[in-house]
Design a protein around this nucleic acid. Structure first.
Lengths: 218, 218
DNA sequence: ATATATTTTTAGACTAGTCTAAAAATATAT
DNA sequence: ATATATTTTTAGACTAGTCTAAAAATATAT
């Protein structure tokens, strides 16, 4: 169907469209893909010819319907494999990404259908991100950043914005896990750090941390 | 480490060394890889520079120690994935090959180590072929072809020489499965076909069939 | 032993994806 | 409104892997 490279570009564009709903720029994609702008232009031309993106020279681009469907199916594979790695192969949530980046390109409908069934049709991956179903449907949780909560508000930790291994390891060290309930005890106006109650203990976290934790308010 | 293409060549050479223990020829490898002799020459030069094969121009080639270890580790991955597909994802033994061809190239020691454990350290894949352990060791069963058995001899069906989907589907249709006991009732000298007793019933199989079934004599 | 057939290698071209450097287009500053 | 800065694209080169056609080496037949 598509090359690994094409699939990686589609996935990257998908993620960037969150940040740039009006359209993604060549430079933004080059940075995301860790490549040069000229390489991006070449690839975008190719994706455009294949009707995967809508593109007008110098005007940025967006995924087409077909491109969106393809990107979502890659993300579905990626996240299903992440669940497999954590639930069945004892990987921790900071170890799954690298391997899932490879596994997401395996081409077999039967494989993914059966993997989904084998895992019990999971709805979220180990980082709390939604897993699209076979039709590409998925529900985005109504969530806010911890840094947006005010004193006295409470909620459940349901996802991370930064899913880098270092950040996830930091959360492990602090015993912060998906599903934990928490409450804002106090917010320091000077540096925006917050004192939270979580798992029966009080914890102070900086703005850098609270800006990367998604909370579902209760 | 190595590219998909390099890994596929190494695997193909490994298999051909069974048939040509003295060394593999360019043409033989080209046929196996479904490519042209000139492409093979180019790749062999590359593998030779990387110390994966021993090669002298016009003289054929063999895997080096490093090449052999690499090939065995790819085969280990391939066969472990085949077990996974059959045991966990409801694939039948004629459906696994294509997907395993893709999965065998995933690079992660942790993944394979954990997959092996998850599957209970299987010793054979769904076709009866041995699965190398993490050190690359595996035991080849002492087996003969059904076509080499004489009237009155008996044994257990332990493997297939031809593992094509069509042959495997044929065996399914005849209800012949790995582990079945069988006995030669009669052998027709004219066309070498044999009448066997298997699963409480008598079955006549042609030389083409009996020449592709591995039997462990009892 | 030599001619002929076969196999293998070489030379040069092509594709996908990448890069650097320069050109072109667009955005920004005054 | 125009000069300057920034972004994007183009041109041309490189690598990995492939191909065809021709050359070189080896094997075979008599």
């Amino acid at each position: 169907m598509f090359t690994f490279s094409e699939e990686n570009y589609l996935k990257a564009i998908f993620h960037l469209e969150r940040k740039f709903p009006a359209g993604v720029s060549t430079n933004a994609l080059a940075e995301e893909m860790e490549t040069k702008a000229s390489s991006v232009t070449d690839m975008i031309k190719k994706l455009s010819e294949k009707k995967l993106v809508n593109y007008k020279k110098y005007q940025g681009f967006k995924l087409s319907k077909l491109g969106m469907e393809t990107a979502v199916s890659i993300i579905r594979k990626h996240r299903l494999w992440e669940v497999f790695l954590v639930e069945k192969l004892n990987f921790s949530w900071d170890e799954v990404h690298e391997v899932a980046e490879q596994l997401e390109h395996i081409k077999s409908e039967q494989l993914i259908r059966e993997l989904d069934r084998f895992l019990g049709f999971p709805k979220r991956d180990p980082h709390g991100d939604p897993i699209p179903d076979a039709e590409g449907n998925f529900t985005v949780l109504n969530k806010v950043l911890l840094s947006d909560l005010k004193k006295g508000e409470s909620g459940i930790f349901v996802g991370v914005k930064d899913s880098s291994a270092t950040f996830l390891q930091f959360l492990d060290k602090r015993n912060i896990a998906l599903g934990d309930e928490l409450k804002i005890i106090e917010k320091e106006p000077f540096d925006q750090s917050v004192l939270i109650k979580i798992n029966e203990q009080e914890l102070r976290v900086s703005n850098l941390i609270s800006g990367n934790l998604y909370i579902k308010t209760t």
